[in-house]
């Protein structure tokens, strides 16, 4: 359980980190919290020749809240969300979601940006980003660019971040007035990777859904925002029959692959369950 040999760099400034990435590209891995990368290296499944440790880049560790939403530096630890950053529904929702990310010690070390860059389809933060139209800031020696969530996730463990680039921040827009969130995740044990999870945000007025966001995690090769189901929900009564119909529609859109923790049929059933429960919570 020892990693293969690698060179280790710990730049003090962002520019220095970007220089290293620019010079070495595909042989590099960026070390943030290390909660996925280090085990993969110890199993020798990941064998970077160069490790660039960004933990000294303090400018990536800021969490800013404002009327426009949240701006989350890539190095912000999961634990920063244990308490809501402000009294917005978005912050309250993130503090409910974070409880499902692994275990307490892992949340002290793992980072928001690391989760997004790793792009595990069972990642809670990836689901949040995809569902709530987050925008990612990506830097290189050539400058910064911004990538919306629907172009960020490219597949299993694959994102828009190129080999010479670094994800530096994530912006999540504020939710509309009156929005309420719901999140439901099922895993084998507390803290395990989700077998399925759903994130729903609804604005309900007079019993009718005026605005809907619905995302599904661990049910495809990337987090899914379920646009057709959102369109179906808007204008409908926020009741059990609607949510059951939405759950059935979500089930049809999901394409989970089976493994030893759950076959594909099982995971499809589970999609319906988590969507129904997330919507029910958002409407309650």
């Amino acid at each position: 359980m020892k990693p293969a040999r690698f060179d280790y760099h710990r730049p003090a400034r962002l520019a220095e980190a970007l220089e290293l990435l620019s010079g070495h590209g595909g042989n590099c891995k960026v070390l943030a919290g290390g909660q996925s990368l280090v085990p993969a290296m110890n199993f020798r499944l990941a064998r970077p020749e160069i490790l660039i440790d960004i933990n000294d880049l303090k400018e990536l560790g800021r969490l800013e809240d404002g009327a426009q939403g949240l701006r989350i530096g890539a190095l912000v630890r999961h634990a920063a969300f244990h308490q809501p950053a402000d009294d917005s529904e978005l912050s309250r929702l993130l503090s409910r979601v974070v409880r499902h990310i692994a275990h307490y010690p892992i949340r002290q070390r793992g980072t928001f940006g690391g989760s997004l860059a790793h792009a595990d389809p069972a990642s809670e933060w990836c689901l949040v980003a995809a569902t709530l139209s987050a925008e990612m800031t990506i830097a290189s020696t050539a400058g910064e660019r911004k990538v919306p969530a629907d172009q960020f996730f490219r597949g299993l463990f694959t994102t828009a971040v190129a080999e010479n680039e670094l994800l530096t921040a994530i912006e999540i827009p504020a939710l509309p007035p009156g929005a309420r969130g719901g999140f439901y995740e099922f895993s084998r044990r507390a803290g395990d990777f989700a077998l399925a999870m759903a994130l729903a945000v609804l604005v309900v007025d007079g019993g009718v859904i005026r605005w809907a966001r619905l995302g599904l995690g661990a049910a495809a090769d990337r987090p899914l925002r379920l646009l057709p189901v959102e369109r179906m929900l808007e204008g409908r009564l926020a009741d059990a029959a609607t949510f059951r119909e939405a759950a059935a529609a979500a089930r049809d859109l999901a394409s989970p692959s089976g493994d030893i923790h759950g076959g594909a049929d099982y995971r499809k059933d589970l999609v319906a369950t988590v969507v129904e429960r997330a919507l029910t919570e958002a409407a309650s």
Partner: peptide
């Protein structure tokens, strides 16, 4: 008796997730 196995038995008995 994993969740998958239990759901499988329920599915065969015609019981939906609801």
């Amino acid at each position: 008796a994993t969740p998958d196995r239990i759901r499988d038995l329920l599915r065969k008995a015609g019981i939906s997730p609801h």
